[in-house]
Design a protein around this nucleic acid. Sequence first.
DNA 1: GTGCCTACCTATCACCAGATAGGCAAGAGG
DNA 2: CCTCTTGCCTATCTGGTGATAGGTAGGCAC
Lengths: 194, 194
Amino acid sequence: MAQSTQAPKTQERILSRAKEIAQVHGIAGVSFRDIAAHIGIKSASVHHHFPSKGDLTVALVRMQRAETESALARIEGEADFRERMRSFVNLFRTHLVTGNRFCLCGMMGAEVAGLPEQAQHELADFFDACAGWLEAQIAAEGTRLRWSPYASPAQVARLFVASLEGAMLIARVHQDVAHFDAAIGVLLDGLSQD
Amino acid sequence: MAQSTQAPKTQERILSRAKEIAQVHGIAGVSFRDIAAHIGIKSASVHHHFPSKGDLTVALVRMQRAETESALARIEGEADFRERMRSFVNLFRTHLVTGNRFCLCGMMGAEVAGLPEQAQHELADFFDACAGWLEAQIAAEGTRLRWSPYASPAQVARLFVASLEGAMLIARVHQDVAHFDAAIGVLLDGLSQD
DNA sequence: GTGCCTACCTATCACCAGATAGGCAAGAGG
DNA sequence: CCTCTTGCCTATCTGGTGATAGGTAGGCAC
């Protein structure tokens, strides 16, 4: 039971620090030495928990996926459709207003060419999960949305997720959430009922 | 006049290689040695043209901005609005179908935290230029577009640019342009006249 | 010819990255 | 008591990075 007292704490702290750096500087900007120094151990000890950087990378995406999926499940409990949409958007918006970070998966998406194959797959799953969840929410609204006559729920969901990532990226360049809100606001309005 | 025969060619080849790598692996993935080896000179000679990596980075954004602005000016000559929109989209789509690359500025946007300040400004200008151009095109269509009652040309333009970047990012993860086309197709349809 | 500029070279720094080998202390379970 | 595992350590390796100093060859201007 020693494992469940101290050991996991270290793993979590490693992942937490790695995520923080990755959201700002990318996976390439994450270093074992920085992580080690930040949590008070040595870089060799980080290798003990995550033998290679690839392992750390995969663990990072997995963690993000798990977090997001549980968040989506929680949001699904909210009654009002527009409220759910707003909560969904806030899942991403939060990163911007907390140290001008990027979505972890968005950042790793940019770096995708250098990632381990498994991380690439998990990353694709992440975006599919987001779009899939969104599609289900939209589909449940039937034909009441402004988009309904023109595009399928699946299409709108994909556009939505893409817009979120792109709007975050651009808002980060401008260091101004207003750019994010302006772009996504249009989308949210478009999802309103006529 | 020796300058205009050989010298600029080398600079262009440096920038060309740097851009190619940056679009796939990011600025962090660009190395002076790789550039040098690829064009058949030594890394110290690359430093001769671009003293520091920051200089190279800034030059890269500047080049991209210039290219894009001249492309936009060219597209502006096309008569049909929807054709112009399609050409605009193709400006970005091209990167995907040519080696699954990302938009240079999109990639640098992800890495923005580590860029020289000047590069950050130029990057912001790039996105402003794209959105500004698009806004003008949309505004010129008056109230004939499906969006017109619901959002201003400026808002739609920002959403459009954000969607392009995000859709490229996600399509790259899936290694499938169809993801890009699906998302952006909705947007293009939305810009059609009722 | 002399001086200067440009483009490139060789040779080398200092630094930081990921990764590995081997050891040490603590706790668990036989 | 003994052994095995876990978590962390020290010490070190290899390789790649940006960057610099100083040299050389060619062309152009005076």
